[in-house]
Design a protein around this nucleic acid. Sequence first.
DNA 1: TATATGACGCCGT
DNA 2: TACGGCGCCATAT
Length: 109
Amino acid sequence: MKPETLNFFDKVYEVAKQIPYGKVTSYGAIANYLGAARSARMVGYAMNGSGSKDVPAHRVVNRKGLLTGKHHFDGTNLMQQLLESEGIEVIDNQIQNLESVYWDPSKEL
DNA sequence: TATATGACGCCGT
DNA sequence: TACGGCGCCATAT
């Protein structure tokens, strides 16, 4: 186990923590920002360990704005509720107006 | 070391 | 955008 691999999850958490309130980003965007553009799946995988972290995983969706990870939350609609609480319109597990709430770490960060 | 898994993304249709 | 299929890559077992 090399240190670099350990940092991968941490890096994902670092970026995810910096997602502004009321904004969302995609797994690919985070992966791209980390220099692992082809490891988008790992970003989501890393989120599995975000349960004990202060990571707002509900603000991370796939590039279509689809809440593909909602099944990993306690409730079936918890993720959507959290997003709506932040002023993000979510219908049928999909974020509406994605462009208006999208937050790209490579640009904003 | 090898095989299976997956909260994705891209491409073709 | 929708759907199906393939590829990528770090973890888990």
